[in-house]
Amino acid sequence: MNYQWDFGIIWSSMPVFGRGIVVTIELTLICLVLGLILGMLLSLAQMSRVRALQVAGRSFVEFFRNIPALIQLIWFFYAFPILIGAQLSPFTAAVLGITLNTGAYCAEIYRSGIQSIARGQWEGARAIGMSDKAIFRRIILPQVFDRMLPAFTNRAVEVAKITSLASVLSVHDLMYQGRLLSATYYRPLEILTAVGILYLCIIYPLSFASMMAERHLARKR
């Protein structure tokens, strides 16, 4: 193999990569925050006493978990505008698709977190005369939060990875810039390897946080 490596191309492309990284991080943060809120609402709907809300919440979650994220993004970019009669920017379509997807997964995290608290905790608190609302806020939520933290940081890792699919809608994220650069300079080996490593640098801290959260939880038990 006598391939002539050209790493200089990576350095000269750094400003372009930089712009992509900013978009990737923006997209990750926006979708994660919105997804957490949506997930909370969905899990409340699923645990509510109103049957229609339960079914709606459940269906939403099942629907978004059983369809690949890429299809969801493409659907929101190409199909959804026809339905509402207005064009969406690639970024908006990506935010919409990734947020709904994230919301569905977060709903499951909330639900299983709350269900994982032993009945004894409710009984113990009732036995000293606390109201259900007080029990939820003072006893259940603090425990649930600890238990859910690793799952949420894990989800953050997944969201950051999923944002790369937005490049298919030509959102100018890191993956998109990588594809563009590699096609422009005919240097896919250097450029795509660099893209992989840059993603690793963005996502690894999230993974690390998730590991720490798990350890923290293990110590508390």
Binding site: V157, S164, L165, P188, S207
Partner: peptide, 17 residues
Amino acid sequence: FYRNTPGIVHFFWFYYA
């Protein structure tokens, strides 16, 4: 490495790189 990089990068890397 695989846990912390998006799948689409792997697809492109194997195809082009």
